[in-house]
Amino acid sequence: MSFFGKFFNKKKKEDLDKGLEKTKTSFLNKLSKAVAGKATVDEEVLDELENILITSDVGLDTTVKIIERIEGRVAKDKYLNISELNSILKDEIVQLLGENNIQDLEDYILPNPDVKPNIILVVGVNGVGKTTTIGKLAHQYKSQGKKVVLGAADTFRAAAVDQLKIWAERVGCDFYSKGMNTDPAAVAYETTQYAIQNNCDVAIIDTAGRLHTKVNLMKELSKIKRSVDKAMPGAPHDVMLVLDATTGQNAIEQATHFTNATQVSSLALTKLDGTAKGGVVIGISDQFKIPIKYIGVGEGIDHLQVFNKKAFVESLFEGEVVGN
């Protein structure tokens, strides 16, 4: 995924690089190895396909679903050659991502442009990059000339408030906090009030990372959401679940529980600048009919991109593989 900005220009080769040696293995290369001398899609090709999808964290169920679709096409068209397979495959996955008829965002638009302010609640497990994503999103809104406030409702993790505050300073937007160890629902409520009173276009509320298995913390999250609704009926206008691309199949559990607790309405997939493919979101998007809005591709302030189905699917098959 080196085409994603940050690491593009760091190409110095030194002894350290040995450890980072990458074999460029495009899907087509792999396939051509698997099908040397063959013209059609057979078991072996499908096995190789399975391997690629599974190692991209797509997961068993979704992989089986995709392969069955391909098998269906093979059966119907009788003869399917390898080069056709590549494009058909991408079509199928893009379709899986888009079956809910959700268009990719064109730009960093507000969830509901008809109201003011928009309230965005950001949720997720520990360490996925919620705060960083908020900082980057705030930067995008700010660059569009919008008035933004960040609400520090992660009052639990050590120095979480400081972290968000530094982001607010970097972005040059407003910041609302009641300090550490205060009631997060109250912070969310007051941030919403602040946004209304100060004529903000958007308030983004940061919450503490929590594992979806912690019942009480999930209840707390529901309460935070309710308190936002109390401060402004109809809010939050977007509940964004942040998922880490390095996460495996557990992301499905995360999506299930966070959706139950807060009716998640969009996804952000972070850390896609690494070697992880984040394939698990295909299944999540398909199963929950939640659109993926943004992807995180680095720690810099502008390393947030609008999600593009086609580009994402491309990256599953054309990325680099470390080692063997």
């Binding site: 599974i54 964290d57 880490d244 390095t246 495996g248 992301a251 690494g274 992880a276 493919k277 080692g323």
Partner: peptide, 9 residues
């Protein structure tokens, strides 16, 4: 919770 990428990392 890391997925398939655990090996690479």
């Amino acid at each position: 919770m890391t997925g398939q990428d655990a090996v690479n990392t």
